[in-house]
């Protein structure tokens, strides 16, 4: 029975995958309309998974509160905050909700964003301390040129040209190379799904 389910899932995945690929390549006509309907169904299905996520979040944190697991106080704060936002939305207090979002969440995320800089600098220092290689030396030198070259000081004006060249040529080339590799890997993974080689629905 399990084997039959796997075969059925594989057949559905391959069939709808080929249909969608054909429709997207065609770009117009009846097959394109069918593809559009399938893509809209996908969007709706993905939207429903948000409910799954909320159920998952609540169940895990409620379990932590009930079992008094480590950090259960934070789980209680999360559940209470979520309940408060939900109640405010139900009673129609949109402005209060918006105010909470702006003053609490945005402020906290901005503070965390500030910490990212320090974490990155510490990470670069740690990389050099761990093992000095040509790659890590080059990484640090380029990092320093980029950061110092961005300073609006007359003393660092000599680095502006170097910084611009670095960003325009080697950094841009490397980034494009990585992105091209990722794009090709995405194509190959997609083809694996289309020919039924992907494990996630096959087994």
């Amino acid at each position: 029975m399990t084997r039959l389910g796997a075969i059925l899932a594989t057949a559905i995945a391959i069939g709808f995958g080929l249909l969608t690929t054909w429709g997207l390549l065609a770009g117009s006509g009846k097959i394109f309309d069918i593809t559009n309907i399938l893509l809209q169904l996908t969007v709706i299905t993905v939207a429903v998974t948000i409910l799954l996520g909320i159920l998952n979040l609540f169940s895990i944190h409620l379990r932590r509160i009930v079992r008094r697991s480590r950090g259960w106080v934070y789980s209680f704060a999360l559940i209470a905050s979520a309940a408060a936002v939900l109640i405010l939305w139900i009673v129609g207090a949109q402005q209060t909700n918006h105010m909470l979002l702006e003053t609490v969440e945005v402020s906290v995320e901005s503070a965390l964003a500030g910490l990212v800089v320090f974490a990155l600098v510490w990470g670069a220092y740690r990389m050099m301390r761990r093992r000095i290689t040509w790659a890590s030396v080059l990484f640090t030198i380029v990092l320093l040129i980029i950061l110092v070259g961005a300073l609006p000081l007359p003393q660092t004006s000599a680095l502006i040209g170097v910084r611009s060249w670095l960003l325009a040529v080697p950094v841009s080339a490397g980034a494009r190379g990585i992105l091209l590799g990722i794009a090709l890997a995405t194509v190959v993974t997609g083809v694996r799904v289309l020919i039924g080689q992907d494990r996630s629905y096959r087994e």
């Binding site: 799954l52 998952n56 945005v106 906290v108 995320e109 964003a113």
Partner: peptide
């Protein structure tokens, strides 16, 4: 576990 992303995924 699902942890919501927020606007900049910092959450």
């Amino acid at each position: 576990r699902w942890y919501p992303a927020g606007t900049r995924s910092l959450a």
